[in-house]
């Protein structure tokens, strides 16, 4: 754009040079753009396109208009996984943020064994979700598992934690909070370390209590970080489904299934790819809405140009 406007007023040789420059840039971008087009842009458009067609198991696929969407709106499982997803987000996002903030405040000050504490909090972040799921699966195993053995030693009865629709989501949420809190901690830590020390000195001269200082100074200063983390955690709650494959397969009776896992099931267990495409459109719409919110509320203030 800029180059073409400028070239109108420049001599011929300069225009030629600009042209060569454009071609150069396009060539540099070619591999990236080809791959992005094949594995991001085309799939997005194809998802939308296929959501308007019948599966065509017997005969060719036919254009069915909004038929798949009508089916989706009538699909109880769809509403259930959507609800599960929002519950899952509500359960994991605020908890991991609160814990992350607590951890960050602790390891930011001079505390005994500070580097050990940081290590302990951050370690779950680098582990594969699938390994984590394996370990926690054993915690929750009825009777034989660690949690039940512990409760039994205290005189309580065993419980099928992952097999009971009323406990399964909480169990999974606890695990995900454990995995994510340390990751969010480092963003708070970075923000805390860039808080001007003069503020603290001023507050201590004024005789402000630590809690008051935190509430009136630190926490408001951390607001952009909190927003940033909330949005990332929210996106993660729609992306994280590895654990379901190992731990519950979405069960019992879809009580722990999430939208992306349902898409996976519909597409690769039932091979209903057009309905899976319809569900994917919903997921894309949600992610786009989150990203847009992020852009409007966050990126404008923390601009990165």
């Amino acid at each position: 754009m800029v180059a073409s406007v400028m070239s109108a007023t420049e001599p011929k040789s300069a225009r030629r040079r600009n042209w060569v420059k454009s071609v150069n840039a396009w060539l540099l971008l070619l591999p990236a753009m080809v791959l992005l087009a094949t594995f991001t842009h085309y799939p997005i458009i194809a998802t939308l396109y296929h959501s308007f067609f019948s599966l065509g198991r017997s005969g060719p696929a036919e254009f069915v208009g909004l038929e798949n969407y009508r089916y989706m709106l009538d699909d109880d499982v769809f509403w259930q996984v959507l609800r599960n997803n929002f519950i899952f987000a509500l359960a994991t996002v605020p908890t991991s943020i609160a814990l992350a903030l607590l951890m960050a405040v602790w390891v930011d000050k001079k505390i005994v064994g500070r580097s050990f504490l940081r290590l302990a909090f951050f370690t779950p972040t680098v582990l594969p979700m699938i390994a984590v799921a394996n370990i926690w699966l054993f915690f929750y195993t009825p009777d034989y598992g660690l949690l039940d053995q512990f409760l039994k030693s205290l005189g309580f009865a065993g419980h099928n934690w992952l097999g009971d629709p009323s406990t399964v989501m909480t169990c999974l949420a606890v695990m995900v909070v454990w995995k994510e809190a340390g990751f969010f901690m480092i963003f708070y830590l970075a923000a805390l370390q860039s808080t001007p020390p003069e503020l603290k000195e001023a507050a201590s001269v004024e005789g402000a209590s630590r809690w008051y200082f935190f509430r009136r100074v630190t926490f408001p200063l951390l607001m952009p970080t909190t927003l940033f983390i909330s949005i990332n955690a929210l996106i993660n709650s729609f992306k994280l489904v590895d654990q379901l494959v190992i731990m519950t397969k979405g069960g019992p009776n879809n009580a722990s299934s999430l939208l992306l896992y349902y898409i996976y099931e519909v597409a690769f267990n039932f091979w209903d790819t057009t309905y899976a495409a319809t569900l994917t459109v919903t997921l894309i719409a949600i992610l786009a809405a989150v990203a847009l919110t992020k852009f409007v509320y966050l990126d404008r203030r923390i601009h990165y140009q």
Binding site: L36, F39, T40, I44, I263, A267, A277, T280, I284, L287
Partner: peptide
């Protein structure tokens, strides 16, 4: 802008169509 689309909609959620590709 076309590049940034991938930050918003990652390959992780495009499993159905990417499988086709």
């Amino acid at each position: 802008a076309l590049v940034l689309v991938q930050l918003m909609i990652m390959p992780d959620v495009l499993i159905v169509e990417n499988y086709r590709v």
